[in-house]
Design a protein around this nucleic acid. Structure first.
Lengths: 271, 271
DNA sequence: GAGCGGAAAATTGCATTCATTTTTGGAAGA
DNA sequence: TCTTCCAAAAATGAATGCAATTTTCCGCTC
């Protein structure tokens, strides 16, 4: 059975990969549960980027034999989270700057699609929820509450994807979000007030287009929004180790292989 | 029944999944090779939709033991090609009408993204290739050459994705293309001349927008193009059994579980 | 003839085992 | 001291084995 130490490994309100990849009850089987746990384990940054994935150790940690673990590794490799080297096992995928740009663009394309579909399908109450989140976010912006801002921001984007009501889209979105999860942004909004204001204005446009159900327009805005987000973010891949955030807890920063250090709570996204 | 002129339209220039999912040399390992073979085997329709995936038989067919085969099945499940039922093995995923619509929309979103990125990155010579394909396609249209039309059409879309120069996008695109591969269209262009002309006009717009490097515009056109394609296609999921094309080799035909048999060739895409 | 147990057979899921490759560690030599 | 080489140890990739679940099939009952 799976070790209880992993139970708390899941992140706060993040869209890691909650969507069953194929409309199937994956969580039921040992394979599905192990896969989810292992994915979280890696996405959370418990393994340094570029580091080998230690089969033996993970087998003990998760209390399974190598067979199901290796199956999970193959799947994670197909998700792009790790890479398999012939006869050398698996390594945690390390993102170069260009790969990161590519992933960001795909995220932009997926959000653009989500926005367009959301305009077609969202209900009035669904819109109301997003509108309220938007106002909450604006309030957080006014009082310079980064954490509150981030939370609302992510919730808005997640709601848009949800409103698109497209299962493969949601799954794919979650996959790419997970891949980019370990990427932190050096230039967060503290140091980049201009971007913060700009992002806030973009969100005004987003809400407005959504209100008018202007699909193509919202689509375009969302893509540019993601583009600007990337451009504003001086990228830096870091490793967060130790206790994971659950609500209000603060993470410890542990340096691994990179000299980079991030003391504050994660600033997962700007914008 | 479908016209016999479409016989070879199956894997004309199709983008099944040639892109290595993670920039790794997958083909080198047995796992990678088996995965590719098995994916093709299913995508080609050798297993009926909804049918059980016979582990034992496939092990013999591919000459491997169950361990690597099961690993491949897990990956294919994560790709959405098959589904895993706890203690009941794998089944070939069967697409309902709504799921098909969802997949088509994602394809539209991915092509829209590809078009936008292509406008940013395509070279003049890259554009020239697409332009030539476009003219070839138009010629095929004029002489009512469905096969030629399909081939050029698919090549154009593939080239756009290629021009986007985004590896995760290409991989994801190939994945969804594979999922939709078994979906055939009852209302092909023979019976739907209106759609054919409309599709041709849309492609004129596509080329024009690409020539002007009008990213957002091309993005929008491509999404609508895919939408129209779906709407025009009376959908019907079929099983192609029997001879599969593998280079020049011809595989044996084996009827499995469904009496359904389709001798004529697939009409993979319209427009 | 249709519906219903129930045991045998097949299948699945996972652990274990084995051959091969890679990595490690240290001794020998420059 | 640094490099090179080689054997031991570890790790990987795949096959096999085994318990548990599911499916099949045959006889029985209604």
């Amino acid at each position: 059975m799976l070790d209880s130490t992993l139970d708390s490994a899941t992140d706060a309100g993040a869209a890691t990969q909650p969507v069953p990849p194929a409309g199937v009850a994956w969580g039921a089987s040992l394979h599905g549960a192990l896969l989810a746990h292992l994915r979280d384990y890696i996405v959370e940054g418990n393994l340094a980027p570029g580091a080998r994935v230690p089969e033996r150790a993970l087998c003990e940690r998760f209390g399974v034999s190598r067979t199901p673990l290796r199956e999970a590794l193959k799947v994670l490799a197909s998700e792009g989270l790790i890479e398999l080297l012939p006869n050398r096992g698996a390594r945690v995928r390390q993102l170069g700057a260009d790969e990161m740009v590519a992933l960001f663009d795909v995220m932009g394309g997926l959000e653009a699609l989500a926005g367009r579909l959301a305009c077609e399908k969202i209900t009035e109450s669904g819109y109301a929820v997003i509108e309220r989140l938007h106002h909450d976010m604006y309030a957080a912006y006014l009082r310079r509450d980064l954490h509150g801002y981030f939370t609302c921001n992510q919730a808005i984007h997640d709601r848009i994807v949800e409103a698109a009501d497209n299962e493969p889209l949601a799954t794919t979105y979650a996959n790419f979000a997970g891949r980019l999860r370990r990427v932190r942004y050096a230039a967060n909004l503290d140091k980049n007030r201009d971007r913060w204001g700009e992002a806030m204005r973009e969100h005004e446009e987003i809400l407005d287009a959504l209100r008018r159900r202007a699909g193509p327009e919202l689509s375009d805005i969302l893509f540019r929004h993601l583009r600007n987000k990337r451009k504003a973010a001086a990228v830096q891949e870091t490793v967060v180790q130790g206790t994971t955030v659950q609500g209000t807890t603060v993470q410890e920063a542990a340096v691994q292989e990179t000299g980079a250090k991030e003391t504050a709570a994660p600033a997962p996204a700007v914008g």
